[in-house]
């Protein structure tokens, strides 16, 4: 082997090591999902497969345990993710477009505000937001989970960066033809912003599906939980639904992995939003 080949092999070995580190937990989660839950709680996750104790029972309990509570969580997650993604992406496209296309008083202040809020972690505001949710009577509701995140600054920033590159001549031409400002947005510009919508829909969907801190605080009753909150509620020393722990976790990850398989590039361009500063 030449020096060059040795180098290339070393590179592949290094990358393979990290790919293994990344993928192994998925394998063990899958294996654990077939083992009795109390076993996992008592003994932890071990390197042994223990094929003899593996069973499909855990997946059946997802439908039966506590009147199918897991299905409630799944339904809540699907609905919240769908509604929140649709509304958040639509509203942030409006704002991002407005910031990119028009000149108006206060525009620069708003844009700096977007940049700053992109970085403010909501975790800081959980207490006052909780009080506010009680006042607004949205505690323990879908609206409560969604409203504070209905115009995510990251998405606004992404749409703004994208819309700056749109052909402004089209807007002027449409105005001469008598199109209204909103007509221009809906009929001409929105179709041109399709790639940005693709990336943001995926980013938002992933964000909503996995959201934890705020839903943990705003959701109070068991049947209103989303998947992450529901799964977290199973990890207690006094629990009796341990069988659902890993089968539930596996089934909750599956949709995102499938989406990732088909839409890898949208995931990646969505995530690199902030990396390319304009």
């Amino acid at each position: 082997m030449s020096v060059k080949q040795v180098k290339l092999t070393v590179v592949v070995i290094i990358l393979a090591f990290f790919a293994f580190f990344a993928l192994a937990p998925f394998f063990f989660m899958l294996v654990s999902s077939f083992k009795p839950g109390d076993q996992i709680i008592k003994n932890g996750i071990s390197a042994r497969l223990d094929l003899d104790i593996m069973t499909f029972k855990n997946y059946k309990t997802l439908f039966t345990e506590r009147n199918g509570i897991y299905l409630y969580w799944y339904k809540n997650s699907v609905l919240i993710t769908t509604i929140q993604t649709a509304v958040a992406v639509f509203l942030s496209s409006l704002v991002g477009y407005g910031l990119a296309v028009y000149d108006f008083k206060g525009k620069n202040i708003l844009f700096v505000l977007v940049l700053i809020l992109m970085m403010v972690p909501i975790e800081i505001l959980i207490l006052p937001l909780y009080k506010l949710s009680i006042t607004l009577k949205i505690i323990d509701t879908y609206a409560g989970v969604m409203l504070p995140f209905i115009v995510p600054p990251v998405a606004v920033f992404f749409f703004r960066q994208f819309a700056v590159g749109l052909p402004m001549e089209l807007i002027d031409a449409a105005r001469i033809d008598g199109a209204s400002e909103f007509g221009i947005f809906f009929k001409i510009m929105m179709p041109l912003m399709k790639p940005a919508f693709g990336a943001m829909i995926i980013l938002q969907a992933m964000f909503s599906w996995n959201a934890f801190v705020w839903p943990l605080i705003v959701l109070r009753s068991n049947e209103n939980f989303t998947l992450p909150i529901g799964l977290a509620s199973l990890i207690t020393p006094y629990g009796n639904s341990y069988d659902m722990l890993f089968s539930g976790a596996v089934i909750s990850v599956v949709p995102i992995i499938i989406l990732f398989m088909f839409k890898q590039n949208s995931f990646i361009s969505g995530l690199t939003v902030g990396g390319v500063k304009g």
Partner: peptide
């Protein structure tokens, strides 16, 4: 690239559940 990216798709809770029990105190844990 895709393989190393995959963990980012999980929620903290799902990932945390795995590591919580993989970091168990028994001698047999991962």
């Amino acid at each position: 690239r895709s393989a190393i990216f995959m963990p980012a798709l999980t929620s903290v809770i799902v990932a945390g559940m795995f590591f919580r029990y993989a970091f168990g105190e028994q001698a047999s844990t991962l």
